[in-house]
Design a protein around this nucleic acid. Structure first.
Length: 265
DNA sequence: ATGTCTCAGGGACTGAGA
């Protein structure tokens, strides 16, 4: 079973690239962030024609998340329980597989703008709320995947120039501490379970030829509960998706679980 | 070098957000 996450920076504009990627990589689940679409404008028909169902939670202009799946999704929940938030940043659902139930949580963590910004304080509060809520979710759903754009580079090795990024938003110590609190619930960064190339990133600024110079950050993560981490056999970043015509500024991250696959197979 | 991309409003370009 293959699970992927991708910040597409406008699903309206990126739909051709997403359909192409679905066809080439055939994930069982794909989490999308920054769809920037109101729900009534979600391209349900095109996604269905590609063999996928979708659940989504969006808004105009900003944010917006979705989960695409080959098999039906159940128990869809929008947002973080107990945390009022007008910004559409989280959607969760369950998938029934031959190996048992799987819970998937798709998240778009606030960017934070800069460490002296109100948006940064919102980001830290948002992360605390996410962690508090997920503690209960993990008890209810021991086989849980939390995938998305975390807007945090976990460690210096996830940063092209740690000196330049030191104490900057996406790399600051309070953000990294918040991520460690989240991981302390019993979640594992799937990417770091395996040997990986040095200088591996998932996001490159559109400016300054950052992609060509590989000046990036690894901020898109797939976190697995302990029960799932054992069955994870691979995890990678598809840099090729950043080389296409009109790319997102993020590359997709995907992982493979040694599960029996979906109920239909 | 605040250098690119996306969206909305309004009907050309500017500002916000990333």
């Amino acid at each position: 079973m293959k699970i992927a996450t991708w910040n597409v920076n406008s699903l309206k504009l990126r739909l051709p690239q997403v359909l192409e990627w679905l066809g080439a990589h055939q994930p069982d689940l794909l989490c999308l962030q920054e769809t920037k679409l109101e729900d009534r404008n979600f391209p349900v028909g095109e996604i269905e024609a590609a063999g996928y169902r979708a659940v989504f939670s969006g808004q105009k202009t900003y944010n917006g998340v979705a989960i695409l799946s080959r098999e039906p999704l159940q128990d869809v929940v929008r947002g973080i329980g107990g945390f009022a938030d007008e910004q559409q940043r989280v959607i969760s659902a369950s998938l029934t597989t031959l190996s048992g139930p799987l819970r998937i949580v798709c998240a778009y963590v606030p960017n934070g703008q800069s460490i002296d910004s109100d948006k940064y304080r919102y980001k830290l509060g948002w992360l605390a709320a996410l962690t508090g809520w997920l503690r209960g979710e993990l008890q209810k759903h021991p086989r849980l995947v939390l995938a998305g754009d975390f807007n945090i580079a976990p460690e210096d090795r996830d940063v092209h120039d740690p000196e330049a990024w030191k104490d900057q938003v996406l790399c600051s110590e309070p953000e990294r501490a918040a991520l460690r609190e989240l991981l302390a619930l019993g979640l594992v960064d799937a990417y770091r379970r395996f040997e990986q190339p040095e200088k591996s990133y998932s996001w490159w600024d559109y400016r300054m030829m950052a992609f060509r110079r590989n000046r990036g950050l690894r901020i898109d993560l797939i976190l697995l509960s302990a029960m799932l981490a054992e069955s994870c056999t691979a995890c990678g970043i598809d840099k090729e998706a950043r080389r296409v015509e009109r790319p997102s500024d993020h590359a997709p991250v995907d992982c493979r679980l040694s599960w029996d696959g979906t109920s239909g197979n």
